[in-house]
Design a protein around this nucleic acid. Structure first.
Lengths: 203, 203, 203, 203
DNA sequence: TCATAAGCGAGACGGTACGTCGTGTCTTACG
DNA sequence: CGTAAGACACGACGTACCGTCTCGCTTATGA
């Protein structure tokens, strides 16, 4: 099962040609950044026509978004290290690596999302839901193992680990390191999940 | 009381005309987002000439950044509620409100940062350092009051509360609420700062 | 009676399907002009495929030219009014009527000719030679009747009547009328053919 | 007076920059023909921006039209040879030379006019009225000299000489020569203007 | 009081990318 | 096999915006 899970779950809805275009887009995106990337360059490098690009993605922004989502599809790999701490560290470090790589793209996608609300759903589904499933999987296994109590899990904050790290990745100046992940896991997330004094929220 | 945190509204170095231009910029930025904002539109709305804009800010990016910084200058007022929990909640809720308002702007600035590395320093100073001083102020007071142990404070993660909330604000779909802040403070931040089992980072 | 002038409607070498395509082309040509006419539109309106069009005519230009020629094929019917003046008036008025109708098409074909020199021959044969035969027929009959002297006929200017009228038709602002034709015949062409003072060209 | 008349009457309403753009357009037009001409090429050759071109002429077609009109503005030179025949020959030969040069352009303009009726007025004024003034000038001088009788002049056909020659120029296969002009002047126009048998048009 | 300069509104300009559209070629699938 | 449907490469079109520039007009000071 680990083997099959190592590959992205869904087989991506793109045709080979489209996948190629997205790959070229992603590469140029990482090389030059969002607005130094030109659709002409994508088309030229893929020996495609601009019309071919625009037939599928109605704007540069949506092309980039699709390329980005395609580029991070392999996130959804359950770590399966055997311990809660191991799984969390694994996930955190993966996010750090990806964050380094995709920071510019995420920034570009973010600004685009605020303009094209129709992309919210795509982001939500492709980005958030997928990660949530992953987190839930990790938590559920830890509960099964008896490492934590299900009651300690707060559904509101499930994304604290990944999204704080992503924020650090996309915000300039303080990219997250392995130390960051360890501190986050050991001093924040695990204490929160196994806390002794359970001060309850009362409103 | 620290040096920086108390100057809530230092009198901005801009002339009245410049302030007006920044205000117009900020408004258009929030209405249309970064790349739908045009310098021509700013100049027109302010009945100014593009030359007047470019005389002060050498590019659209720096104009927008200046407008953004001007727009969030009054953030740094310390809460002073008398308890650690109160201060944290206050700060968190303030960030939520501001986040709602400035989400688009932050996104715009963020995308710009990835292509104008010179802005990193500005962001760092104006955005991060200011907030760090605020957090330090809150923590120091809590330590002074004996609420927490100085040793429990991890310098790596001081920004967990504000920046996680900001991420939630700028990412589509799950804006933070008062409940989010309460859960974060009561179930994560305070447990972390007062944790009983201090599993230390080892490598 | 000459060889070419009497075959008013030789049975076109096109298949029914091709004829339909040409008819659609001609209609769209008159409606929208040459470059607003698209091959896609022709194919769509005829419920044909673009490949079907291009299989027969290797370019839009040749398609349009074929359509035009098909559209004016029935021009060459000799008047036979019994007098030179009657024949000329008849021909002139026919040209006026046709000119009104085909002005746009002629313009379209004209612009194409300048870039596809291979069409020169087609134009020459289909358009000029046919009309020349007609004029020659009229002149020959007038000579036979003794109305004019063969010596007064200048082979250089045989097309003065039709082509001046056509120019007036395709040039905006002054379409030729029956008055135009009468003036042309009575005050120019016939005086020229029956002139008393024969100032000869001297070099 | 001859000296000043040798230059185009009106000083052209274009700015130097615009004149340069039109000159470049005209040159490329004659080199490559209408649709091999690209606006990008015009802009590049003139070291101008496409925006600069499109600011003044809303389409390629209108640019070409303006260039063409600018290119034939020097037509309006009264010949002043001293005799009617000399003036007519001079005008005819000038038209032949210009026709050779501008045939492609005239064709392009023609097809455009049929599509953009707003250009009719421009054509009418710049092209027809100007030439009509010239013809009238020649005729008036001939009347003054007593060469012809004013009554023999038909206002309907004043453009016979120039426009028949232009038609020959733009129609493929039979470009007008000096012989054409001589025949036209000596055997048609002058006989018509000095005809002895004045068969009147009666309807 | 006038002139000489500095600042500004207005907007043309070169450059560059965008997104659209049309031509002519090609492939796929249907009849 | 011919054809309808339509994807595709190529390339021009016309638009939009950035950042630079020039032109006049105002205003503020110095002779």
């Amino acid at each position: 099962m680990t083997q099959t899970a190592d590959r992205a779950a869904e087989p991506s809805s793109w045709s080979p040609r489209e996948t190629e275009l997205l790959a070229v887009t992603l590469q140029l995106l990482q090389e030059h950044g969002y607005d130094r990337l030109t659709v002409d360059a994508v088309a030229a490098k893929a020996r495609a026509s601009k019309a071919t690009v625009y037939r599928r993605w109605p704007s540069k922004a949506e092309l980039v978004l699709a390329a980005f989502i395609e580029g991070i599809r392999q996130v959804a790999v359950p770590p399966e290290t055997g311990t809660l701490r191991g799984d969390l560290l694994h996930m955190g470090e993966l996010i750090c690596r990806q964050g380094q790589q995709h920071a510019g793209t995420i920034r570009a996608v973010l600004v685009e999302v605020s303009r094209n609300p129709a992309l919210n759903d795509v982001i939500k589904h492709q980005f958030i839901e997928q990660r949530k499933a992953l987190v839930n999987h990790i938590i559920a296994q830890a509960v099964d193992r008896g490492e934590i109590d299900r009651a300690a899990v707060n559904d509101e904050l499930w994304d604290l680990l990944p999204h704080y790290l992503i924020f650090r990745s996309i915000f300039p100046g303080r990219p997250p390191t392995r130390q960051t992940v360890k501190a986050l896991v050991d001093e924040v997330v695990i204490p929160s999940l196994t806390r002794c004094n359970d001060r309850k929220v009362d409103g």
